[in-house]
């Protein structure tokens, strides 16, 4: 089983996010960067599948700058075999990034390409499906369960009010949702080994952005409303307000 996992370096969800002086980009100074949390599920799933198959390799790939090597090393420390850094800037929307990834993947042998469902910086939820469309292979998105039997795969994905079951042949694209698995922690040994694993660097140039950010603003601070009262006795007044003031019931 040869698996490619696409990962991205993103600010940790706890990081404070501020707009930059130009009001049209993000100031990431002081942010702590991590392997995108949904990509941890992707790496874990790839490792599990390879272990289950008893043979093959897991390649982690990213489009980014030199600083993304750290992210690749994190995935190598979890157990991936090798890494590819596509050197270039990702796009604002998903397509430019997907084009660079698809281009790099085209010449490689793979049975499966695994993604996270979403990078938690731009929250685009676009790249996996786009890569599948560009490569002309099937795709299961927002996957919470995956089974592979020979050359066919069955995936469960989250939809409103339940699950859809997708059946498709390999090679294919799968994008991981939380709940797919429990990502492992890198062991000390894994971290040591990661330093020696191959990390290929390819200059690919910046991805094309079809969107531009015109302005970054903060969402309005919510304003506290009123405490209607204490205990069950306050309920009739609350219901009256919901009906007459807020007009929501």
């Amino acid at each position: 089983m040869n698996i490619i996992v696409c990962v991205k370096r993103v600010p940790d969800s706890e990081s404070r996010i501020a707009k930059a002086a130009d009001n049209a980009s993000i100031d990431t100074q002081g942010a702590k960067f991590v392997l995108n949390p949904y990509d941890e599920y992707a790496v874990e799933e790839a490792l599990k599948l390879k272990e289950g198959a008893g043979a093959g390799s897991v390649t982690v790939m990213t489009l980014g700058g030199d600083e993304s090597k750290e992210t690749l090393r994190t995935a190598l420390a979890m157990g991936a075999d090798q890494a590819v850094l596509l050197k270039g800037e990702p796009s604002v929307d998903g397509l430019g990034t997907a084009e660079k990834l698809a281009e790099a993947i085209k010449g490689r042998e793979y049975d499966l390409i695994v993604f996270g469902k979403q990078a938690i910086d731009n929250d685009n939820l676009q790249v996996p499906v786009m890569v599948a469309e560009l490569l002309g292979v099937p795709c299961a998105n927002v996957v919470v369960q995956l089974e592979i039997d020979g050359r066919t795969a069955t995936a469960h994905r989250e939809v409103e009010g339940g699950h859809e079951i997708l059946e498709f042949g390999l090679p294919a694209v799968v994008a991981a949702q939380k709940g797919l698995n429990e990502p492992r922690y890198a062991s000390l040994k894994g971290i040591m080994q990661a330093k020696k694993k191959p990390l290929e660097e390819i200059e690919v140039g910046d991805a094309e952005s079809r969107l531009e950010i015109l302005e970054v603003t903060y969402p309005p601070e919510p304003t506290a409303g009123e405490i209607v009262g204490e205990g069950a006795d306050a309920v009739p007044e609350l219901v009256r307000k919901l009906r007459e003031e807020a007009k929501v019931i």
Partner: peptide
Amino acid sequence: RPAYGGKVLFKVGFK
């Protein structure tokens, strides 16, 4: 559109 988990809003234009 919101980004960064809703911490910021992006106003975007199409090229």
